[in-house]
């Protein structure tokens, strides 16, 4: 998947997550801020990495502000952000 521009998806309401995708010309970086970082920070990171791999996305900066979203929501928001960035 080729990303062309910066894009955002999601909201900062409870049980949601806001994800920003910024294509850049260097190694990928993922920043996670989460209400449940201690309990789930690692799992959120793993999930994001696996979706990036699945979609063949590299050289991107991902900023995540999580308000206790379940995996399906994180996954949907990231896919939306990637979809928008690829437009």
């Amino acid at each position: 998947m080729k990303l062309n521009k910066r894009a955002i998806a999601g909201t900062m309401t409870s049980s949601d997550v806001m994800i920003e995708v910024i294509p850049w010309g260097k190694t990928s970086e993922i920043n996670i801020k989460s209400d449940v970082e201690k309990q789930y920070g690692d799992q959120i990171l793993d999930l994001i990495n696996s979706i990036l791999r699945e979609n063949d996305v590299d050289n991107v900066c991902i900023n995540v502000v999580d308000k206790g979203a379940l995996d399906f929501t994180i996954s949907a928001r990231l896919k939306t952000a990637l979809f928008r960035a690829a437009k």
Partner: peptide
């Protein structure tokens, strides 16, 4: 099943 197992508290 809904939230998955959390990391233990340190």
């Amino acid at each position: 099943k809904i939230v998955k197992k959390p990391n233990p508290i340190v």
